[in-house]
Computed example of a mutant assay.
Amino acid sequence: MALKDILVHVDSSHHCRARLEAATALAVRHDARLTGLFVRTMPHVPQFVMSQLGPEVTQAQRRFSQDAADAARRLFEEVVDGAAITSEFRAPEGELLDALVLHARYSDLVVVGQYDRHDDNMADEREAADHVIMDSGRPVLVIPYAGHFPVIGDRVMVAWNASREATRAVSDALPILQTAKEVDVVAVNPRRNGVNGHGDIPSADIAGHLARHGVNAVAEHVVAHDVDVGNMLLSRASDTGADLIVMGAYGRSRLRELVLGGATWHMLNHMTVPVLMGH
């Protein structure tokens, strides 16, 4: 499958421009259509409160939401201006998470921002990446809130654990992997046998599969039982200069990861490079 439809979430956060620039560069690289989505949300105010405040409050809220949408449109058009791609801006009114998931289902890739708890304009986005990953059925590219990422996909690290989720992520990322200059397939603390076993040579089978699809993949594995998987992956990405990590998301229940921690939770909270996740 080629990347022909990319959806990017546009918001009022301080990090939105970097996210749009990354999504635009990716769309140019893959000759894809880029759709910017800004969701005009309305705060939930109890009816008895609204009856006391009057219609002026609702009107003011709608004006504020429309002004934010207009600013988002201007930023989107400013970033994509001059790029050799087809683009569209959408600003539906509704619930943020529902709208993101709905529009994501009609794209090949969804680009969202990492949640930044220090940015008040992202207050409603705490679970945005989670919901799109779990409910859209589409691969999700999460852009870190710190840094700029003009190039995504030259040097890719695939986090391989032989799971269904990792398999899905690799399949979803294939168009990106096929254009990459280098792909490192890394297994951390691999098991040899079982349904999620790696065989005698960890990562070798998936690297061979990717090679048959024209991907320049190298199989590696790391054994470090005293370091959690998330930290190991980020450390490895830093050492190799990876500009993208591809990994499966939520191989165990999301609630279990939120309580006990896990590679997905760690990556969403501590990522230093863009991460493409599949579920």
Rank of each mutant, 00 (worst) to 15 (best):
residue 3 L to K: 05
residue 6 I to N: 11
residue 9 H to D: 03
residue 10 V to I: 12
residue 11 D to L: 00
residue 13 S to T: 11
residue 15 H to D: 01
residue 18 A to P: 08
residue 22 A to T: 15
residue 23 A to Y: 03
residue 23 A to H: 04
residue 28 V to G: 11
residue 28 V to A: 13
residue 31 D to P: 03
residue 35 T to I: 08
residue 38 F to E: 12
residue 41 T to N: 13
residue 45 V to N: 07
residue 49 V to N: 05
residue 53 L to S: 06
residue 54 G to V: 05
residue 64 F to R: 14
residue 66 Q to E: 15
residue 67 D to N: 14
residue 67 D to T: 15
residue 68 A to V: 02
residue 71 A to N: 05
residue 75 L to Y: 02
residue 76 F to W: 07
residue 80 V to C: 10
residue 80 V to L: 11
residue 85 I to V: 13
residue 86 T to P: 09
residue 89 F to Q: 12
residue 90 R to D: 10
residue 91 A to L: 10
residue 91 A to K: 08
residue 93 E to H: 12
residue 94 G to C: 10
residue 96 L to C: 02
residue 97 L to Q: 14
residue 102 L to S: 14
residue 106 Y to W: 15
residue 107 S to L: 14
residue 107 S to K: 11
residue 109 L to Q: 05
residue 109 L to W: 01
residue 110 V to K: 04
residue 111 V to S: 14
residue 115 Y to P: 05
residue 116 D to M: 09
residue 118 H to P: 10
residue 118 H to Q: 14
residue 119 D to R: 05
residue 120 D to W: 13
residue 120 D to N: 12
residue 121 N to L: 14
residue 123 A to P: 08
residue 127 E to D: 14
residue 128 A to S: 15
residue 130 D to C: 07
residue 130 D to M: 08
residue 131 H to G: 13
residue 132 V to Y: 04
residue 132 V to M: 09
residue 135 D to M: 10
residue 135 D to R: 13
residue 136 S to I: 08
residue 137 G to F: 07
residue 139 P to F: 00
residue 142 V to K: 03
residue 143 I to E: 01
residue 145 Y to M: 07
residue 147 G to W: 06
residue 149 F to L: 11
residue 149 F to N: 08
residue 150 P to M: 00
residue 156 V to L: 11
residue 157 M to N: 04
residue 163 S to E: 01
residue 163 S to R: 00
residue 163 S to Q: 04
residue 167 T to D: 05
residue 168 R to H: 09
residue 172 D to C: 07
residue 172 D to K: 00
residue 172 D to F: 08
residue 176 I to W: 01
residue 176 I to N: 01
residue 177 L to G: 06
residue 179 T to W: 06
residue 179 T to G: 08
residue 180 A to P: 03
residue 182 E to N: 08
residue 182 E to V: 08
residue 183 V to K: 02
residue 185 V to I: 10
residue 186 V to T: 09
residue 186 V to D: 03
residue 186 V to I: 14
residue 189 N to T: 03
residue 195 V to Q: 09
residue 196 N to F: 07
residue 198 H to S: 07
residue 199 G to R: 05
residue 200 D to V: 15
residue 205 D to Q: 15
residue 207 A to H: 02
residue 208 G to M: 10
residue 208 G to I: 03
residue 208 G to R: 10
residue 214 G to M: 06
residue 215 V to E: 06
residue 215 V to I: 09
residue 216 N to R: 15
residue 218 V to C: 10
residue 231 N to Y: 14
residue 233 L to H: 00
residue 235 S to P: 03
residue 237 A to V: 02
residue 240 T to P: 04
residue 242 A to F: 09
residue 242 A to Y: 02
residue 246 V to W: 01
residue 250 Y to I: 01
residue 260 L to E: 09
residue 261 G to Y: 09
residue 261 G to T: 08
residue 262 G to T: 00
residue 266 H to Q: 04
residue 268 L to Q: 02
residue 268 L to A: 02
residue 271 M to S: 12
residue 274 P to E: 01
residue 275 V to A: 07
residue 276 L to C: 12
residue 276 L to Q: 04
residue 277 M to F: 10
residue 279 H to K: 00
